[in-house]
Nucleic acid binder design. Structure first.
Lengths: 247, 247
DNA sequence: CTTGACCTTCACGCAACGTCAACCTGTACC
DNA sequence: GGTACAGGTTGACGTTGCGTGAAGGTCAAG
């Protein structure tokens, strides 16, 4: 028994294009080629094709399938490797789903909309993970609630203040001012006051916050956009401030 | 403040290639182009870039991101659509993981190895889902245990018998024999006997099995490989047999 | 002037085919 | 023999989001 390319495609539920593809890449050769160039497949080819499709349904890539079918790789080993990859993918998806859900919830609460209008460039909701991971959900929720109670004008004022402080600090860093100087420490005090509106950090937390500005590229970008190195400069200034003024 | 392509790439943690890509596709244009062709980005561009990367981390495609950023699509709607897609992907992955685990278990029990040697073309383990779904796990396990107790010679004999019956039925269908004829019904009896080795179907189940041979392309392929239409022919013959001989 | 870092524009590569396009073959019917 | 129609063939581009050279111009420093 022998079949044309269409017949065998229908038989196993695939397309002739796929079979030609498998031929081209050497995964499944026709058992015979007609003098007219037509491809013909026999029962052995059918069996091989069915195994190919079985492994394909499991998500294996075609090169991996070829390795298994040609006896180069053990079936179970290939599947174990594949399984690990699948599990990782699933975890990644789970994290992504959680993030998207959070983001949706926030946009529905209008938070993101405000962010779009006002907070662009320093969207506090964007950093939920960091805040929550390091200082707990309570602080974060508190911070959010406080933010939500504000009028748009008040929110804008806060953002403007943040921008001013950041810019002034950047300028100080460009001038090379000592981070311990009165002027710089005065700017840091304004920064601390600004932060305190959302959440009151102790010495350790405030120092930690400064480190985060440098460690997390998203924060870094938001300070370095005023001047390169501004984030690191702010971190140093914050440390001095914390050690002098906080417990 | 203005940055070169490398600077802004490092600032947000991406590559200059990516930024050129976004430029090419119109997702993020540089704020200014130098007379030398260099790309320069200002703060507004930085903000837009950060939003792009935020959405990208959520898994949105670049065209979708463009739609959101240009205000053509609502953020939350885009995210909802995306979330549905993510959930479907996760389910698909879960199913695939289950399948791979099952397959690994079977290969480790040596079942698949035998299948590779003997059962190719009618691998009973390949159809676990159908069998389990329609007649319960007990029947399937019983069937598997029985198979496992056999010697390789016995297994081979059973497969040979199945092939003989299938081939003879295909020939009868080609000749156009009546499915109710004695000869054909004799062949069906051999088929029933063969099936009964694994599992004893009643009238309804046996008729159902015949229907499955036609409905499921994988079964169909295994009978039609002897002759086109053989699966449908067998189904008809099985129905006659069941109605005459089974309860 | 050289070096080295950075910039530019092509353009292929990846995974697994889908989808034309342009052109033969085989079979059936008149 | 002609005609129609289904089915076969070989290219070759499109898809997603960049990575990765290739080949060559630009800029600041020594």
């Amino acid at each position: 028994m022998e079949w044309s390319i269409q017949e065998i495609a229908r038989l196993v539920g695939t397309t002739s294009r796929t079979l030609r593809h498998y031929d081209d890449m050497g995964l499944l050769k026709p058992s015979r080629m007609g003098s007219n160039g037509y491809r013909y497949y026999d029962q052995a080819a059918l069996v091989r094709l069915q195994r190919i499709l079985l492994l394909r349904e499991l998500g294996l890539g075609l090169p991996a399938i070829a390795g298994v079918l040609d006896g180069q790789r053990e079936t179970s080993k290939a599947l174990m490797t594949h399984l690990k990859w699948l599990r990782q993918e699933q975890e990644r998806l789970a994290r992504q789903i959680a993030s998207v859900e959070t983001t949706i919830r926030k946009t529905e609460e209008g938070e993101q909309l405000m962010a779009e209008e006002i907070l662009d460039g320093f969207d506090n909701s964007q950093y939920e993970e960091e805040v929550v991971n390091r200082w707990g959900r309570a602080a974060y929720d508190h911070s959010n609630r406080k933010w939500a109670t504000l009028s748009k004008e008040q929110q804008r004022d806060l953002m403007v203040e943040q921008e001013r402080v950041a810019r002034a600090l950047a300028e100080a860093s460009v001038r090379g001012d000592d981070v311990a100087s009165d002027e710089v420490q005065q700017l840091v005090r304004r920064h601390y006051t600004w932060v305190s509106f959302f959440w009151t950090p102790n010495r350790e937390a405030y120092i930690h916050l400064g480190e985060m500005y440098v460690a997390d590229p998203r924060f870094t970008a938001n300070y370095d956009k005023h001047a390169p190195g501004a984030a690191a400069y702010l971190r140093d200034a914050m440390r001095v401030f914390a050690e002098r003024n906080l417990d």
